[in-house]
Amino acid sequence: MKKKIVVPLILLLSSHTIMADAINDMFTQYQQQGVSNASEQTGKTLWNKKFTDKKTGKDRSCTSCHGVDLTKVGKHVRTGKKINPMAPSVNKKSLTDVKNIKKWFKRNCKWTLGRECSAQEQADILTYLKNQ
Protein backbone atom coordinates (compact mmCIF):
# COMPACT_ATOMS: atom_id res chain seq x y z
CA MET A 1 0.00 0.00 0.00
CA LYS A 2 2.78 2.35 0.98
CA LYS A 3 4.59 1.69 -2.31
CA LYS A 4 1.67 2.97 -4.36
CA ILE A 5 1.92 6.40 -2.82
CA VAL A 6 5.68 6.58 -2.74
CA VAL A 7 6.27 5.92 -6.44
CA PRO A 8 4.23 8.80 -7.88
CA LEU A 9 5.66 11.06 -5.23
CA ILE A 10 9.18 10.24 -6.33
CA LEU A 11 8.22 10.83 -9.97
CA LEU A 12 6.65 14.14 -9.08
CA LEU A 13 9.66 15.26 -7.11
CA SER A 14 12.16 14.11 -9.71
CA SER A 15 10.41 15.85 -12.61
CA HIS A 16 10.27 19.01 -10.56
CA THR A 17 13.97 18.70 -9.87
CA ILE A 18 14.77 18.25 -13.56
CA MET A 19 12.82 21.37 -14.42
CA ALA A 20 14.56 23.29 -11.67
CA ASP A 21 17.95 21.99 -12.84
CA ALA A 22 17.47 23.13 -16.41
CA ILE A 23 16.12 26.50 -15.36
CA ASN A 24 18.92 27.01 -12.83
CA ASP A 25 21.41 26.21 -15.56
CA MET A 26 19.80 28.79 -17.80
CA PHE A 27 19.78 31.45 -15.09
CA THR A 28 23.42 30.80 -14.30
CA GLN A 29 24.20 31.43 -17.94
CA TYR A 30 22.09 34.59 -18.02
CA GLN A 31 23.91 35.85 -14.93
CA GLN A 32 27.21 35.29 -16.65
CA GLN A 33 25.88 37.47 -19.44
CA GLY A 34 25.17 40.27 -17.01
CA VAL A 35 21.56 39.66 -16.03
CA SER A 36 21.08 40.53 -12.36
CA ASN A 37 17.32 40.08 -11.96
CA ALA A 38 14.33 38.78 -13.86
CA SER A 39 10.71 39.85 -13.77
CA GLU A 40 7.73 37.59 -14.20
CA GLN A 41 5.52 40.55 -15.16
CA THR A 42 7.94 41.78 -17.85
CA GLY A 43 8.11 38.24 -19.15
CA LYS A 44 4.34 38.00 -19.33
CA THR A 45 4.09 41.32 -21.18
CA LEU A 46 6.71 40.23 -23.68
CA TRP A 47 5.01 36.85 -24.13
CA ASN A 48 1.78 38.59 -25.10
CA LYS A 49 3.31 41.47 -27.05
CA LYS A 50 2.53 41.72 -30.76
CA PHE A 51 5.30 42.23 -33.28
CA THR A 52 4.64 43.07 -36.91
CA ASP A 53 6.40 40.80 -39.35
CA LYS A 54 8.20 42.94 -41.94
CA LYS A 55 7.62 40.54 -44.78
CA THR A 56 3.95 39.67 -44.34
CA GLY A 57 2.79 42.74 -42.40
CA LYS A 58 0.99 40.39 -40.02
CA ASP A 59 1.15 40.47 -36.26
CA ARG A 60 3.06 37.75 -34.51
CA SER A 61 3.40 36.91 -30.85
CA CYS A 62 4.31 33.93 -28.69
CA THR A 63 0.59 33.41 -28.28
CA SER A 64 0.12 32.94 -32.05
CA CYS A 65 1.05 29.31 -31.52
CA HIS A 66 1.16 28.75 -27.75
CA GLY A 67 -2.03 30.61 -26.87
CA VAL A 68 -2.67 32.90 -23.92
CA ASP A 69 -3.53 30.19 -21.39
CA LEU A 70 -0.33 28.21 -21.04
CA THR A 71 -2.01 25.30 -19.32
CA LYS A 72 -3.86 24.58 -22.58
CA VAL A 73 -2.63 22.82 -25.69
CA GLY A 74 -1.32 25.23 -28.33
CA LYS A 75 -1.72 25.07 -32.09
CA HIS A 76 0.93 25.91 -34.68
CA VAL A 77 -0.45 28.91 -36.53
CA ARG A 78 0.75 27.64 -39.90
CA THR A 79 0.53 23.87 -39.79
CA GLY A 80 -2.17 23.38 -37.17
CA LYS A 81 0.02 20.90 -35.31
CA LYS A 82 -0.78 20.58 -31.62
CA ILE A 83 1.80 21.99 -29.23
CA ASN A 84 2.02 20.60 -25.72
CA PRO A 85 1.17 23.11 -22.98
CA MET A 86 4.11 25.28 -21.91
CA ALA A 87 3.02 25.35 -18.25
CA PRO A 88 5.17 22.99 -16.16
CA SER A 89 2.18 22.58 -13.82
CA VAL A 90 0.38 20.51 -16.46
CA ASN A 91 3.27 19.42 -18.70
CA LYS A 92 6.04 17.80 -16.70
CA LYS A 93 8.40 17.75 -19.68
CA SER A 94 8.22 21.47 -20.21
CA LEU A 95 11.42 23.40 -19.49
CA THR A 96 13.38 20.32 -18.45
CA ASP A 97 16.05 20.38 -21.12
CA VAL A 98 18.62 23.15 -21.57
CA LYS A 99 19.32 22.28 -25.20
CA ASN A 100 15.61 22.37 -26.00
CA ILE A 101 15.05 25.67 -24.23
CA LYS A 102 17.91 27.27 -26.18
CA LYS A 103 16.77 25.83 -29.49
CA TRP A 104 13.22 27.10 -29.16
CA PHE A 105 14.26 30.52 -27.87
CA LYS A 106 16.49 30.93 -30.91
CA ARG A 107 13.99 29.73 -33.48
CA ASN A 108 10.91 31.29 -32.03
CA CYS A 109 12.38 34.66 -31.10
CA LYS A 110 13.62 34.98 -34.66
CA TRP A 111 10.17 34.15 -36.00
CA THR A 112 8.25 36.29 -33.55
CA LEU A 113 10.49 39.31 -32.97
CA GLY A 114 12.57 39.07 -36.14
CA ARG A 115 15.72 38.75 -34.02
CA GLU A 116 17.16 36.68 -31.21
CA CYS A 117 16.00 37.49 -27.69
CA SER A 118 18.50 39.03 -25.30
CA ALA A 119 19.59 37.22 -22.15
CA GLN A 120 17.43 39.62 -20.13
CA GLU A 121 14.35 38.94 -22.26
CA GLN A 122 14.89 35.20 -22.03
CA ALA A 123 15.33 35.39 -18.27
CA ASP A 124 12.06 37.35 -17.93
CA ILE A 125 10.10 34.99 -20.17
CA LEU A 126 11.51 31.93 -18.44
CA THR A 127 10.54 33.37 -15.06
CA TYR A 128 7.00 33.85 -16.32
CA LEU A 129 6.80 30.41 -17.91
CA LYS A 130 8.19 28.40 -15.02
CA ASN A 131 5.50 29.71 -12.68
CA GLN A 132 2.64 28.65 -14.89
Partner: peptide, 12 residues
Protein backbone atom coordinates in the same frame (compact mmCIF):
# COMPACT_ATOMS: atom_id res chain seq x y z
CA UNK B 1 16.58 25.93 -42.46
CA UNK B 2 16.65 29.57 -41.41
CA UNK B 3 14.17 30.25 -44.18
CA UNK B 4 12.10 27.13 -43.97
CA UNK B 5 8.91 28.10 -45.82
CA UNK B 6 9.08 31.49 -44.10
CA UNK B 7 9.64 29.95 -40.69
CA UNK B 8 12.85 29.63 -38.75
CA UNK B 9 13.69 25.98 -38.27
CA UNK B 10 17.37 26.31 -37.37
CA UNK B 11 19.11 23.30 -35.90
CA UNK B 12 22.48 23.02 -34.24
Amino acid sequence: LENHFDENAELD
